[in-house]
Design a binder for these strands. Structure first.
Length: 414
RNA sequence: GGGGGAGUGUCCCGAGCGGCAAAGGGGGCGGACUGUAAAUCCGCUGGCUUCGCCUUCGUAGGUUCGAGUCCUACCUCCCCCA
């Protein structure tokens, strides 16, 4: 397993981060010789990253922890194009204002995982708009266009997939991989960056960058990808019915984030502990081997550790305590997500369910009530026309509204 | 340039004699069973002021009492010929 000499690659490999490496021995040797600089690009397609990006963020963190310098590259420029990798259709073009707003939200999360600064292994955050926005079309084509053949570009999965599925691929998107390759070249020149990492769907883009660096500057660059991560039952990481598992507390409360990990499938526990926590491998092996209901202890630890990394130790403890009260005592825990409604005037049950995020329309809420999923203060309700008012407040001055076993919200008067 | 085929419920795949809010899967959600797991079984899966009304089948028109279904034009994609 641990055929690597460098702590960096050794750690990534044993914890399950590695799918492909362009030149494993070369990269290993470079990492042994001294601190190297590596980067991962993040496009600003939403106002927050979600759990699907967490693997990449953890890699940057491990990179720093093992004595190297990570760069978080913000795709302020590439987002204007849109990456076609792994997608059936072009996503809607975002306005520059949207992109900038998204970058704001995204960049915030890195401070929790990386130490930034000016030191040799301090992380950097760079925006590729710094160079991409200034490119001159003709000059760019003449300088770099000769290094890419259409023949080769057509052979990459990101392109082939779209073509095979008979979906249109526009010239705009077709250019994405070239710009990403150029990013790598720029970073190698500006920051002596020799490594690009990313998800397995980025392999083609990364290889293009390596090629470009070799042809233009004669540099030896490296690429490393992570496996496509799914849950044991095949679902994409970071997606739930309620939507993505956002890393921003504004979009997903620390409590719900904790719950996401707590609800991991048994078969995923070991793998997730290795990827999303920093517990020692021996400890993880012990936890993953727990049988039956005992594995719930491992899941709690997973939730605690993962939440602490993102939202801090205090938030993790609070989430764990809220969960304990809610699930193990069946109590109305004060730490549950809370919404405020005008209870004095009275609020319809269906409307309350929509506001609580249980349903996206009154009709859907109605079906949930008819299906017996909705409870008020832990009592099932069947009357969809019920009105919630001040009279429903419990001893703690709130109404506990629940859907199913896992979704709970506290309603407080305005 | 010529000929043929395709685009369906804004999660996906996919049926659809002119009466259709539109078969069936998958996914998702809820219920039962459990361990806040998986598997299994059951229910739900367009919106609303719900005995009814409104909006959906690539886009825009047309025929018809009535169109996803027929006609015309346009858009996109695929295949064959040149």
């Amino acid at each position: 397993m641990s055929q690597f000499k460098s702590e960096f690659l050794n750690t990534l490999a044993t914890r399950g981060f590695v799918h492909q490496i362009s030149d494993a021995e070369g990269l290993d040797a470079a990492a042994v010789a001294g601190p190297i600089t590596g980067y991962i690009g993040f496009d600003a397609t939403a106002s927050s990253l979600h759990a699907g990006s967490l693997v990449q963020i953890m890699m940057l963190r491990w990179m720093q922890k093992t004595g190297h310098r990570p760069i978080a590259l913000m795709g302020g420029g590439t987002t204007k194009i849109g990456d076609p990798s792994g997608k059936d259709e072009a996503r809607k073009l975002l306005t520059v204002a949207q992109i900038n707003a998204n970058l704001d939200g995204i960049s915030r999360v890195f401070g929790r995982f990386l130490r930034f600064g000016q030191g040799p292994t301090d992380a950097l955050m760079i925006n590729n708009a710094d160079w991409l926005d200034r490119l001159n079309y003709i000059d760019f084509l003449r300088d770099y266009g000769t290094h890419f053949t259409i023949n080769r570009m057509l052979s990459f999965d990101s392109v082939k997939l779209r073509l095979d599925r008979e979906q249109p691929l526009t010239l705009l998107e077709f250019n994405y991989m070239i710009l990403q390759a150029y990013d790598f070249l720029e970073l190698s020149r500006r920051q002596a960056c020799v490594l690009q990492m990313g998800g397995s769907d980025q392999w083609g883009n990364i290889v293009n960058g390596i090629e470009l660096g070799r042809r233009v500057d004669g540099r030896q660059l490296h690429g490393l990808t992570t496996p496509l991560l799914t849950t044991a039952s095949g679902a994409k990481m970071g997606k739930t019915a309620a939507g993505a598992v956002w890393l921003s507390a504004d979009l997903l409360s620390p409590y719900d984030y904790w719950q996401y990990w707590r609800n991991a499938e048994d078969a995923d526990v070991g793998r997730f502990l290795k990827l999303y926590t920093e517990l020692p491998l021996a400890e993880i092996a012990r936890l993953a081997a727990l049988g039956g209901s005992e594995i719930n202890e491992a899941k709690k630890l997973l939730a605690n550790e993962a939440t602490a990394l993102l939202h801090g130790h205090a938030a993790a403890v609070a989430a764990a305590e809220t969960a304990r009260q809610t699930f193990e005592e069946g109590a109305s825990a004060a730490g549950l997500p809370t919404i405020s409604l005008d209870l004095k005037a009275g609020v319809g049950l269906l409307q309350a369910c929509v506001t609580a995020g249980f349903a996206s329309s009154n009709g859907e809420a109605r079906r949930h009530v008819q299906g017996g999923a909705i409870r008020v203060n832990d009592l099932a309700v069947s009357d969809e026309k019920m009105t919630l008012g001040l009279g429903h407040l419990n001893a703690d001055g709130a109404i506990k509204l629940s859907m199913g076993k896992k979704k709970h919200v506290l309603i407080k008067p305005l």
